[in-house]
Simulated scan of single mutants.
Amino acid sequence: MADENDVLTDLNMDPAAGANGADNLPTVGMLNQYIKDFSVENPNAPASYQWTEQPRVDVQVNIAANQVSDEVHEVELKMTARADSDKGNVYLIELAYCGLVGIRNLPEEHAHAFLFAEAPRLLFPFARAIISDAVRDAGFPPLLLDPMDFGSLYQQQLQARAAQQQGEGAPDAPTGNA
């Protein structure tokens, strides 16, 4: 028969946490997802439906995280999809899609990585579907966005910041614009 420590180890629990009821295990989870702000503009309708040229589509994605309480953060995935032609704006769609993330007993660097890489990865498929449906509902072919690798983007941001900080610390670093 297994003793208490074997059972706790099998459950991936700290024996000390199970023995005294302390809640000291790292825990992260998505608590809720929601549309915080959503705008669909079709400013040149009905004329834009007669335009035959292929519009230029620009999609911007930004991530923000705000602490709501000690253990809850709001992660905002802000997406803007804009289509323009030589005759004018075809459509403009702005979406702020958010998730409430619970984080407990996680080191700061891991929490930051979750908030800016993993949480957006979880939110993106839902935001992508909302954007696609909005473009279709505005009377245009759906905008099919490719998946994004938020983990790689996060790593690139960290490397760029490290390089910038290293450049700022160099005594003979060039300044100004080239």
Rank of each mutant, 00 (worst) to 15 (best):
P55C: 08
E94C: 04
S85C: 05
P15T: 03
K87D: 11
L11V: 03
P55Y: 08
M79F: 11
R56N: 15
V57P: 00
V72A: 01
N12K: 04
G29M: 06
S69N: 11
V101W: 07
R82G: 10
V101H: 00
F38L: 07
H73R: 01
T52K: 14
T52M: 10
Y97C: 08
D23C: 08
G29V: 01
L92G: 10
G29Q: 05
Y97N: 12
W51L: 10
V68S: 02
A19W: 03
L77G: 09
N89E: 12
T9P: 00
N5T: 10
G18P: 03
E94V: 07
K87Q: 14
A45R: 03
V57C: 12
N89F: 03
F38I: 05
G21F: 03
A16D: 06
V90G: 04
Y34Q: 13
R104L: 11
A65Y: 06
A64C: 03
A96E: 09
T80V: 12
E71S: 12
A19G: 02
P15Y: 02
G88P: 05
V72K: 00
T80N: 11
P43L: 07
S39R: 14
M13P: 01
V68W: 01
C98G: 11
T80I: 14
D58T: 14
P46F: 08
P26C: 04
N44R: 08
S85A: 09
L11C: 02
W51Q: 13
V7G: 01
V40G: 09
P43C: 07
H73T: 05
V40S: 15
N12G: 05
T27A: 11
A17T: 04
E71F: 10
A83V: 11
T52S: 13
R104K: 15
P55H: 06
M79T: 15
S39L: 14
Y97A: 11
Y34F: 15
R56Y: 12
F38A: 07
I103R: 00
H73A: 01
A16K: 05
Q50H: 13
E94D: 09
N89H: 03
Y91D: 00
H73Y: 05
W51C: 13
V75S: 12
K87R: 11
G21Q: 04
G99C: 10
S48E: 00
S69V: 06
L100I: 05
V75D: 00
I35H: 07
L31A: 14
P55G: 11
R82W: 08
K36T: 14
A19L: 03
F38T: 03
N89T: 13
H73I: 00
P15S: 02
E94N: 03
Q33Y: 12
